[in-house]
Computed example of a mutant assay.
Amino acid sequence: MEMAKRIVLLAILIRAALSPLIAFANDPSPLQDICVADFASSVKVNGYVCKALDAVTVDDFIYHGLHIPGDTNNGNRQRTTQVFVNALPGLNTLGAGFARLDFAVGGINVPHTHPRATEVFLVWEGALYMGFVTTDRRLFVTTLYKGDVFVFPRGLVHFQINVGNGPALAFAGFNSQSPGLLQIAPTLFNSTPPIDDSVLRSGFRVDQATVDQIRANFRTA
């Protein structure tokens, strides 16, 4: 009996030691086969309420149109087509998401983070310079080409920019149905309500004219 208690205690200690490394890397595991998101429900949970099973159809598990290029006629010359739970309700509770990323020449997916997901990034066409920065400000950066895969760790600031002579195309997978997106510059300079200018002046060590110029750039984007 004493040996059994020691084994149980050891197992508890090992799990406690490993818990920061496992179990919390993505969305919670589902407790049923399917839980198609019910967008009509007013109930708010950590995710979406499950649609009634008799209302679920095969269309809840299909997304059409990812073969269509995204419109890159914008300030960043880049467009991301997201296939998250809002676009594909069958993803609800499954801890997965997908995206198509189109880049015109010189197009950039500006520095941003996904607070709820790790991202696996596949270059389909073109040449993309990309990287991420760790919390101790170490930069990991490279240029990748057709068929190359890169991983962006959860929550870290990262970016991609087209450095080729033609358009670039990539696809990305996420271990969350709703990874979240925080673009660094728009988040800080175009929030609602706006962050006080004194914070931005001090945080970026710039004058008021620079803060005003950056704000104006994002308000007209």
Rank of each mutant, 00 (worst) to 15 (best):
P28A: 01
L200G: 05
V133P: 02
I214Y: 09
S42P: 00
N26K: 13
T80S: 13
I62E: 09
Q32P: 00
Q208P: 01
V206A: 14
S19A: 08
D197G: 00
F84C: 03
V163Y: 13
R15E: 00
T80F: 04
N76E: 12
A25W: 01
F159L: 10
D212T: 05
V83C: 13
T118R: 12
A221V: 09
V49N: 04
V163M: 12
H114K: 05
F103V: 01
R215H: 06
A16R: 02
L18N: 03
R219A: 10
F61Q: 09
E119L: 06
Q78V: 04
E119Y: 08
F61V: 07
P194L: 12
D102H: 01
D59A: 14
L188T: 13
I62C: 07
A221K: 15
L53M: 02
G95S: 09
D136N: 14
S191I: 10
Q213C: 01
T192S: 15
T80W: 03
P167Q: 06
N190K: 13
K146P: 00
T113F: 09
G173I: 06
A52L: 02
V8H: 03
R79L: 04
I14R: 05
I12H: 07
H114W: 02
R154C: 14
I108C: 09
G47Q: 06
H114Q: 05
F174G: 05
H114A: 07
P89C: 12
G107P: 01
V133D: 01
P153G: 08
T134F: 08
V56F: 10
T80I: 14
L13I: 14
V8G: 01
R77Y: 04
V149A: 03
V120F: 10
I108L: 07
V211P: 00
D38K: 11
L31M: 05
S198W: 01
G131E: 04
S42N: 15
F218K: 13
N26D: 14
F152I: 10
P193T: 04
V8L: 09
P69A: 06
A37G: 11
I34G: 07
A99Q: 08
